[in-house]
């Protein structure tokens, strides 16, 4: 299990990295390496060159700016998880990260790497969709901001082009009167989710004034559960409305039967997880009030 030969460069700037990537279509950016290197060791991937992003200062660091958390692509997952300002701004992030792999993997794995990798069962992309976050993509001479929902196209496929680098991830802070919850079912602790649901519930006078729900593991990409959200909007997060939301979630589970779960099982999981996360998020919303 040794990787194939490749060339290695560790540029100091985004521009330089973009130039290198543009000059060789088989080259790949290397972030924390926690997804890319295993596939190289299996020789499933054999990029001609690795453009290591670790020296690019501009990709490091994260900050809470008003109601947005700006996260440099190379921010280690564990650093984000442990940052107190981030926890205050949006405690959902740490709750989600606690389900991503293991501490030692999160020590090296980056936020940008996980988002760019875009595994359909990964937790961070799901969180980004649920929170309505955005991704900043840079190419030579330009930059664009892509909404999370438009960014993830398919399992391990994103709107990012080969000549682009993901430079920053922007996660909205938790809005007022809003509770949050993430729950997943995985075979082992730290495994990718068979199904996972992120819920954000805003309560006003006991009814849901805003709801955002997203699921991972159940479809070909992290998925907004729009119909389930609609069922809850304007209603109290319980009883009849909650039952309708849970029922609506079922249809978002479209992943074909695989070795760990049937579609049918995933449909039931999506439903149960919506009910549980919404309930928990609503409880938290009440606590915050």
């Amino acid at each position: 299990m040794k990787p194939a030969l490749f060339a290695y460069v560790a540029p100091q700037s985004v521009e330089e990295a973009l130039e290198l990537l543009a000059s060789d279509e088989m080259a790949r950016p290397l972030a924390g390496g926690q997804s890319l290197i295993p596939t190289m060791n299996f020789r499933i991937a054999a990029p001609s060159a690795l453009v290591d992003l670790r020296r690019i200062g501009a990709l490091n660091g994260h900050a809470v700016e008003g109601d947005v958390i700006r996260v440099g692509a190379m921010t280690r997952q564990r650093d984000l998880e442990r940052d107190e300002a981030v926890q205050r701004a949006n405690p959902l992030i740490a709750e989600v990260l606690g389900n991503v792999a293991h501490i030692v993997i999160r020590n090296r794995g980056t936020v940008g790497g996980s988002i760019a990798h875009a595994d359909a069962a990964a937790e961070l992309p799901c969180m980004l969709v649920a929170t309505g976050g955005t991704v900043v993509a840079r190419r030579a001479g330009g930059e664009r901001t892509i909404a999370a929902e438009d960014f993830f196209l398919f399992h391990m496929t994103t709107a990012l082009e080969a000549v682009e680098l993901l430079t920053e991830v922007r996660i909205p802070a938790l809005p007022p009167h809003t509770g949050y919850a993430f729950q997943e079912v995985a075979r082992r602790h730290g495994d990718y989710a068979l199904a996972g649901v992120c819920a954000l519930v805003t309560l006003k006078d006991g009814v849901c004034s805003a709801v955002r729900l997203a699921a991972c593991g159940v479809a070909s990409k992290p998925t907004r559960l729009a119909e389930a959200e609609a069922a809850l909007l304007g209603a109290p997060p319980e009883g009849e409305a909650l039952a309708r939301a849970a029922e609506a979630a079922r249809d978002y589970a479209t992943a074909a039967d695989d070795r760990q779960a049937s579609t049918d099982y995933r449909r039931d999981l999506a439903s149960a997880l919506v009910r549980r996360t919404v309930t928990k998020a609503a409880d938290r919303a009440r606590e915050r009030a």
Binding site: V185, R187, L194, Q260, A261, S262, D264, Y265, D268
Partner: peptide, 11 residues
């Protein structure tokens, strides 16, 4: 035994 199998049995 697996969660998937438990699901099948219950179903």
């Amino acid at each position: 035994l697996t969660p998937d199998a438990i699901h099948r049995m219950l179903k």
